[in-house]
């Protein structure tokens, strides 16, 4: 646990809906008969986070940063190697398989690829009624009415009820995936790159829809994305991950206006829409998560790295109220 005491990252006066401490995941890599040793991919290392009811927390990072794994760990779609996920007072680790399945009605997921996440052999209506039967014990007419209501909620209509996913465009499929996630009346949704596969005009539609539904239903949302401009539009707070570790957490405006970690600053400057004057392009590439660098994992690409950075893993510490960074240097202008 690298967090200093009392540095729990959460808005004041609000009990978190989701609270995560010391979350880690290593995926084993088997050795082979040519002598390659058994190793482990360190996908997520010692992550703490909280999501308040009705809050949208963004998780940003590049490929291999562990952002998708964090999302899956939160719903316990993969088992953590270490750490706790507490959802509304319930430790998910204490739940047996049946209990967990029942508990999932409170936490749902939306995936990136709406072409892969819908069953091609199921009509949209059936796909929506399945969670209604499973989680809300609705059958027959009631379930059908509810499914139509869900379709209307996401901007589709009763006409779409009997059609198969292949009849829909990418944007419409993502609407169906959203309707399906909402079917069990969850309080928390993990959205993993939900608009990344869509064209900009469609992306804007789906983002607006998600934002409206989130506000209307008071949903808590973990919004995972590599696209900083999308994250800025929809989130309240943002967490920046690099090689499985948290680099920085802050309120969205604060993070974009005053990034405190060199990696966050570099990400913002690399984004195509960056309007600032001096633009420093980060060299190198993300190191292998099988053998991450010692100390600060970002040090191998950091323009401000010192010898000390290789010694210890920097703790996540508060630099301004509600703004945390994992960097030992306070003497740098970003």
């Amino acid at each position: 646990m690298m967090l200093a005491e009392n540095s729990e990252v959460q808005p004041v006066d609000q009990r978190p809906l989701v609270s995560v401490t010391g979350l880690s995941k290593q995926f084993p890599v088997r050795g082979n008969s040519w002598g390659a040793p058994a190793q482990a991919v360190r996908a997520v290392e010692d992550v703490d986070l909280t999501v308040a009811p009705g809050e949208v927390l963004g998780v940003v990072g590049e490929s291999g940063s562990g952002k998708s794994t964090v999302g899956r760990l939160l719903l316990r779609l993969v088992e953590p190697s270490a750490g706790k996920v507490i959802f509304d007072g319930q430790d998910l680790g204490d739940l047996g398989p049946d209990e967990l399945r029942k508990f999932r009605r409170h936490m749902q997921m939306i995936f990136q690829d709406p072409f892969a996440s819908l069953n091609a052999r199921m009509t949209v209506g059936d796909a929506l009624m399945e969670p209604l039967k499973l989680h809300r014990q609705q059958r027959g007419r009631a379930a059908e009415d509810e499914a139509v209501a869900l379709l209307e909620k996401v901007g589709l209509s009763a006409d779409h009820f009997k059609r198969y996913p292949r009849a829909f465009s990418g944007g419409q499929r993502q609407r169906i995936a959203i309707a399906r996630a909402l079917a069990s009346s969850p309080r928390f949704i993990v959205a993993d790159e939900p608009v990344s596969a869509l064209d900009v005009s469609v992306q804007a539609e789906v983002l607006n829809l998600m934002q409206n539904l989130q506000q209307e239903l008071g949903l808590a949302l973990l919004f995972i994305s590599h696209d900083l401009s999308v994250v800025e539009v929809i989130t309240d707070r943002v967490m920046v991950l690099y090689l499985g570790r948290v680099m920085e957490v802050a309120r969205t405006e604060e993070l974009y206006d005053n990034p405190a970690h060199p990696y966050t600053a570099a990400l913002l400057q690399a984004a195509p829409g960056y309007a600032g004057e001096s633009r420093q392009i980060l060299g190198g590439e993300i190191p292998s998560p099988i053998a991450p660098p010692s100390g600060c994992v970002f040090r191998t690409r950091c323009p401000f790295a010192l010898a000390e950075c290789a010694q210890t893993v920097p703790a996540l510490r508060e630099v301004r109220p509600g703004h945390y960074k994992a960097c030992i240097r306070d003497d740098i202008a970003l």
Partner: peptide, 15 residues
């Protein structure tokens, strides 16, 4: 349609 930085007053720009 492009999500972009908030306007000068810090308001979120609607898409």
């Amino acid at each position: 349609c492009i999500p972009s930085r908030r306007d000068g007053s810090g308001n979120r720009r609607s898409l």
